[in-house]
Design a protein around this nucleic acid. Sequence first.
DNA 1: CATGAATGAGTTTTCATTCAT
DNA 2: AATGAATGAAAACTCATTCAT
Lengths: 191, 191, 191, 191
Amino acid sequence: MTKKDAICDAALELFAHKGIQATTTREIAERAGAAEGTLYRHFDGKDDLAEWLYNRCATQLHDRLTERIGDADTPDERLVALIRGVFDFFTDQPTSCTYLLSARSNNGNQEHRDALPAPMRLFVTTLEEGMKEGTFRPAAPSLVAGWILSMVQRTVLFLKSDHLAMKRQDAIDQTIEAALRLVRAQTPSSN
Amino acid sequence: MTKKDAICDAALELFAHKGIQATTTREIAERAGAAEGTLYRHFDGKDDLAEWLYNRCATQLHDRLTERIGDADTPDERLVALIRGVFDFFTDQPTSCTYLLSARSNNGNQEHRDALPAPMRLFVTTLEEGMKEGTFRPAAPSLVAGWILSMVQRTVLFLKSDHLAMKRQDAIDQTIEAALRLVRAQTPSSN
Amino acid sequence: MTKKDAICDAALELFAHKGIQATTTREIAERAGAAEGTLYRHFDGKDDLAEWLYNRCATQLHDRLTERIGDADTPDERLVALIRGVFDFFTDQPTSCTYLLSARSNNGNQEHRDALPAPMRLFVTTLEEGMKEGTFRPAAPSLVAGWILSMVQRTVLFLKSDHLAMKRQDAIDQTIEAALRLVRAQTPSSN
Amino acid sequence: MTKKDAICDAALELFAHKGIQATTTREIAERAGAAEGTLYRHFDGKDDLAEWLYNRCATQLHDRLTERIGDADTPDERLVALIRGVFDFFTDQPTSCTYLLSARSNNGNQEHRDALPAPMRLFVTTLEEGMKEGTFRPAAPSLVAGWILSMVQRTVLFLKSDHLAMKRQDAIDQTIEAALRLVRAQTPSSN
DNA sequence: CATGAATGAGTTTTCATTCAT
DNA sequence: AATGAATGAAAACTCATTCAT
């Protein structure tokens, strides 16, 4: 593992748990077992590193979701696949996931972050398809996508804090069911 | 208006828009038209001010919600009243509302904030009542409350960013309906 | 004396003797008996301080030269007055003078310095008058002004390094005579 | 061209235009198309490189001036030859010339530079001869040499900045005439 | 109460130099 | 000879907090 990787890992961990601002470059370097100056050989500074990590995490999630979506034929299935994908991402890479979620909501100033990052767009597209088909009830897709992602995020936070009070799988299943209730059009017989 | 009020207003605005850490005491003082030292005559420091403001906002919202709830007899009505109350709060005091919402999600370290602040507890209580009655489907109340508040927060952010693309009232009504779909037990005929 | 003045004095001394780049903010603060942060309360940084000092020195010299010029009626007398003024400035405020001269020549990048600072302009104006009158031989005034100022600067450096090998007053008189030979038109009988 | 040459060229350009201190080894390496470490294979460090370049430039100029002086029989002719030599040097190798001139004045601390570098000494010697002969008026030779070199430097800067406002040859001729007026003893009939 | 200059510890950042490859 | 990642000491700069007025 190169020093650059060590720095990325250390920074990701710290950013996810303490926030970007509260993390010092010294902490990052120490945890990475590198000199402080090394950070600046690979990145323009702390903020650049934070952004680079954000993009990397967003890409990882996006790739995973894209892969998941391939197996699904209907918007309904795709939506479930997407939600499961996010939960899987959280299970496999909790730190990346935490950072991604916190970075999203933290930047009140929204300066340099896409209003609609890649993973979000997958949700929006899927919802649009479902609405066109009539599977999903009509509504502003980006708003509904935001709702669902927020719910997932909540569940993730809930699982992290509410230690073991609820089985992980139950929480995930309930979140998916809830999301479907949110978007599904009236289907008198099915539900 | 006293200097203290000026400082509170300035700080609230800045905290809500840039975050607590990114706001400097100098900025607060400048915007308030006060000297930097004056802040320390009324508060123990920046963090104390931030906490004081948070509690003030939470109390304001809590009082408003408590008042709203009084008119409602069923858990169902109470839930709607609570959601409407939050939206009203956002309409009347957008900055306070933004600060309240951002402060919640921003502190990944959860150091000095109640896990369950007052307004949140009103939601939880209402959900518990509804679940006991059978009006609402059984689930972890604090998780469901988190979902609903997150949805409301999303809608608020959506209304702030998606300038006028959607009528405010429509967005609010849709959010309420969606929240009800989330929590209501199967009621074959009613819905 | 305020801290600001102490910082200015310390910085001027160090800038003049070691150059701006070679001087650290820590040195300035130490010599001024102030904290490093105090520098930043009064100036935007080291470079801002350097520029502020440059302007102050240039103004001081300009004011002194303007005063001196008042007593002189002819361009010839004015030129002598100007040169003497610069030498007096050097005698009274050697540090300011050294800084002014070094700052001029040091900035090869000429970024943020007037091409023609105030004192220089007095020389140019005087030369232009003399040339119009016919007292001075025709030539590019700004070039000739540069020559004379460079000569004066040289003499100043010479006096500082060539410790006492030449009487100060002799050096000054010789410089003035030389400058006059440089600019005076042919005057068969007088010289 | 070897890497060493590339580094020398790059460094000379940067030193001349930004100053030694303001130039980083990384810049030099980048511009030279070499790695940073390569510099240290050929020189002991940045300062060593700067000094080596200075000596090379001084030697180049000195050789050129020595050659020029050979054709001249009188001190008067020799002085003109020297001044022309400097201007030629500037025309042929403007960067070297700029560096030589700036390096001279820049080091206020005079740490590691000869007080009287080789080219300067040629001027001094020539002036001493002329003064002994009576061709030049008596004065401190090193001071007068400084004056003349400063004038030449000024003219060079003037030619660089005052883009084409004056013909190069005119400026040079005027500088020479002015220098002669400075040093020549009274010669009632000749001039 | 109010002020704002002063503080100094802490942070980010720079960069000449080294060294394993 | 050449490389360029890594270093770390030193530099610039920030800012919450204090205190004399």
